[in-house]
Design a protein around this nucleic acid. Structure first.
Lengths: 344, 344
DNA sequence: ACCCGGCTTGACAACGTTGTCAGATGTACA
DNA sequence: TGTACATCTGACAACGTTGTCAAGCCGGGT
């Protein structure tokens, strides 16, 4: 009983004693069906538990599938979750379903997942790339797939994108620390083959140069992938002969790891910390975590707006590369004074 | 150019100078195609950017779509994110794509989304229900849709389910508080029309009765939906003539709101707090938040295991209703001594 | 010369749906 | 009475794919 195959229009037609096409008309709400037949069909639909088969319908109509893919770094992460939610909220209004997956920075997985989605004929794709080059998407874009890259700029191919102003954000963070008297500011970031990580590092470097802060390789850590990596890296910074007086953490997870390392060394109230990207309890930590907030909902909303525009066939328009501003949120950890301030 | 329609096997066949069926054979890796033709076909596939159309293929083959739906409360929430990720990890190994959506406790949305997913012929559904009665799923289950309900027991219909032992978990939390000398323990939970919330409240009530703790209606708050609700509710508890000496928070978001309210009243170190469901920075708050941890990954993993079993046609077996145990994690906030302890 | 078997290839129908078109019926008008 | 027209209904092909089956070719055995 449970393994029975689904009822088709054929079955409904037979039960209602009408033709296939009449069932189709009723199901699609087309005009020109007498009340009596319509009632008979609706009754049969009800009795058989008939459900419209969108796959067959789309095949015949040559229509789009009203589905999109969203590939992010890790769905567990607050950033990805918030982004996906923003996308989903808009998608639902349009009756578009969202297929999502995590890439874990694995290029191979990105390529495979995109292929699977394309074979399912998604209409659009929102991608936070794990690959270093997205030119493999060229045939899909040519074939009409709408793609918007988020969080990172596209590489090897021209595509719409929406990113945060990473370099400016981090620079603002460093400015903020310098304004509070810090001259020895460390940076802890992700692998620089991730463009976002590279941009943030560049923002740090330019601010350090501009402000004439201590510019030493040992203050710059990259390649902190896991929370454990990040925590070890911060612990190592704190153990330097001349440790930094402030830390700029370039990502969500790294910020939390830094808090943990500072706690372990009982230096939470001595060493300043500015993070990048907000997280739910940042204001509840002691001290509160000052950080550069990116507009994650804005990122998702703009990406989805652009995607829907492309899906509606807004061709010809040049590629958009939107950069959303960041904001600094003061909460305490970034306002711990440095040596230059203490001198006063 | 961008609006061109996708190449079909027809086009590939024409370009390669072979029949449609030969293309099909090559694409599906069927044996019995000469090397020369296979090479010609592969070349044409490459040139045209041909991508297999799974919808048409499934239609013809009568196969399943290798896609499932996952409907959760809110993708932004750590709980939902973690759950989705656990499901996704298993799905990917099987080449199954996951369509996810948030329900925001809106029954209507659940019904609509399920319909949309069924019309897309998903093979399975993992559902954290927002409806009070899931009997509307009966026709779908009859038609062969595999369904597993998570986090909450199914109602109005028999289905497989995986839930945490909510009542026992909360009772353990209250036990813990009582063991630390508290006799006046408040409870803050969600709307009791959500079964999980009702179970947790029941666990609280049974523990209070069993231990002979203060049993007063004013100590029991339900209906805390938003963080703001919860924060106000806790503030109100603290403002009582005889305020509680300990608080049992029944959900993630409520726990964080409680921390916020206690902070605002400068009572974080006076009033004990035990939460339900872990969150990433619980150990970093001051004091660390003691809570009842549910095995979210286990929840997702078991649900997916059962779902895949059903999808593979494991019929006949009775419905499984798995209940996963919870664990208490001591971090400080739950070990703040109460009056009975202080007397010693 | 004939037949057999194995191998490769393609014609055709079918999956569930819908657009097109033609047939059937009824009504109104000259 | 005949014509025109509107309304309702269904037969049929097609969307892109694959299972079935038959046809063509080749070499080898009689």
């Amino acid at each position: 009983m449970a393994e029975r195959t689904r009822a088709t229009m054929q079955h409904v037609a037979a039960l209602a004693g009408v033709s296939l096409k009449t069932v189709s008309r009723v199901v699609n709400g087309e005009p020109g069906v007498s009340e009596e037949l319509e009632a008979r069909v609706r009754d049969a639909v009800q009795r058989l538990g008939y459900r419209h088969n969108l796959a067959a319908s789309n095949l015949r109509r040559g229509r789009r599938t009203a589905s999109i893919g969203v590939l992010v770094q890790d769905l567990r992460n607050d950033f990805s979750g918030e982004l996906l939610r923003a996308v989903e909220d808009i998608a639902r209004l349009r009756g578009v379903v969202v297929m999502s997956s995590s890439l874990d920075e694995e290029p191979q997985r990105e390529v495979e997942l995109v292929r699977g989605l394309v074979e399912r004929r998604i209409d659009g794709l929102i991608l936070m790339p794990a690959t270093e080059d997205q030119s493999y998407l060229l045939p899909e874009v040519h074939a009409g797939l709408a793609v918007v890259v988020v969080d990172r700029p596209p590489r090897g191919i021209s595509l719409d994108s929406v990113t945060a102003d990473n370099a400016a954000g981090v620079a603002a963070g460093v400015d903020h620390l310098a304004a509070h008297g810090h001259r020895r500011v460390a940076f802890v970031g992700d692998d620089t083959h991730i463009p976002t990580a590279a941009d943030r590092r560049a923002g740090y470097l330019s601010a350090v140069a501009r402000l004439g802060l201590d510019d030493e390789p040992e203050l710059r850590v990259t390649g902190a992938r896991t929370p454990q990596d990040a925590e070890r890296a911060v612990a190592a910074l704190l153990a330097l002969d001349r440790p930094p007086t402030a830390i700029m953490a370039a990502r969500n997870v790294i910020t939390i790891a830094a808090v943990r390392a500072l706690r372990a060394a009982s230096l939470s109230h001595q060493i300043a910390l500015v993070g990048f990207d907000d997280f739910p309890t940042a204001d509840l930590l002691e001290p509160g975590v000052t950080l550069i907030k990116q507009d994650v909902v804005g990122l998702g909303t703009r990406a989805m707006d652009i995607l829907l525009g492309r899906m509606d066939g807004e061709a010809g328009v040049g590629w958009r590369n939107e950069v959303l501003p960041t904001t600094l949120v003061e909460r305490g950890s970034g306002e711990i004074p440095g040596p230059a301030a203490r001198r006063h």
